[in-house]
């Protein structure tokens, strides 16, 4: 076990953490702001990646391709939003339906299960072969996303979305069309996920049909790690940065357990356990707290 190899993997972890941080901020919008667990992301991440990869392979500017990746993600969010609000299908099931459908859509977009975009052939925004540039580029995207989200959720419309997630009945009593706000939140969220997909495809040099598998869990891990670390600070921008920080921590820990000798195929189990543990913290605290008071009481 060479400590140097672990240190060498650090820049890669930071770059990946920043990219997944964008996805995690999207999940923050649905999971924390709207109080909806949206499973669309497992599909829409790949949709964003697929659209970007296919367009880049077709000679489109990578930045323009990323823009279309955002639109593709937004469209996916719109479908989930309509299923949930117009047809009243529970949010989780709406997300699962869209996600499932997106598998076929993504295959149609790519025509095969994997589209390679070589860094030697195309002028990609970032690549895993140059982590310094990758970190700078993805950090710029993170910064732009944080600024835009911070601004949006301070506007009248953004506050209406927040109120919808916070207290739906109150929001309606204040004349807010809560269904429309939920759709808007899902569109924004999946737009960010599409953006993450478009950037990720360039970073790893390909779009793969399985690239979004378990994305929701990684995003949630980032959100909860950020929450635990920056939970006391209620400033919205800090929370968003905290979420990205959470994604970086997640990828650093991943690199660490790989270095310890875990197989890459074990990582999904590891991710699931990590998220389950973090999400259990409030309940564990309660149980643990009760035991302590009981002891003290006697």
């Amino acid at each position: 076990m060479n400590i140097l190899s672990l240190l060498n993997s650090l820049p890669g972890s930071v770059a990946q953490g920043l990219i997944w941080g964008i996805l995690a901020m999207g999940i923050y919008v649905t999971y924390k702001v709207l109080d909806i667990a949206d499973l669309t992301v497992d599909g829409s991440l790949c949709t964003g990646g697929a659209v970007a990869a296919v367009m880049i392979a077709g000679g489109v500017e990578p930045l323009v391709a990323v823009l279309f990746a955002i639109f593709a993600g937004m469209a996916a969010g719109l479908v989930t939003g309509v299923l949930h609000t117009v047809f009243k299908i529970p949010a989780i099931l709406s997300g699962i339906l869209t996600q499932l459908a997106l598998y076929s859509v993504n295959m149609r977009i790519m025509g095969k299960s994997n589209v390679t975009i070589s860094r030697t052939k195309y002028d990609l925004l970032l690549t895993s072969f140059d982590n310094t540039t990758a970190i700078v580029v993805s950090a710029v995207f993170v910064l732009i996303v944080v600024i835009l989200l911070y601004w949006f959720f301070g506007t009248e419309l953004g506050c209406a979305v927040r109120a919808t997630g916070g207290n739906e009945r109150m929001a309606r009593a204040q004349g807010i069309n809560t269904d429309r706000m939920k759709v808007l939140g899902l569109v924004i969220s999946n737009g960010l996920v599409g953006l993450a997909g478009g950037i990720l495809a360039q970073y790893q040099g390909n779009a793969d049909i399985n690239m979004g598998r378990g994305a929701i869990v990684i995003g949630l891990a980032a959100v909860v790690i950020g929450e635990v670390t920056f939970g006391r600070i209620s400033n919205f921008a800090v929370r968003l940065f905290g979420t990205t920080f959470g994604a970086i921590v997640y990828y650093a820990v991943l690199a660490f357990v790989l270095w310890l000798g875990l197989e890459t195929t074990d990582l999904k189990l590891f991710s699931a356990i990590t998220v389950a543990v973090f999400l259990s913290v409030p309940q564990l605290k309660k149980i643990f707290g009760k035991v302590r008071t009981r002891k003290g009481g006697c």
Binding site: T155, C159, A160
Partner: peptide, 19 residues
């Protein structure tokens, strides 16, 4: 103040102006 601002805009169009 955010709650009050939400109520203040009851029945009005909510745009991208500061809340």
């Amino acid at each position: 103040e955010e709650n009050l601002a939400l109520a203040k805009r009851r029945g009005k169009k909510r745009g991208l102006g500061w809340s």
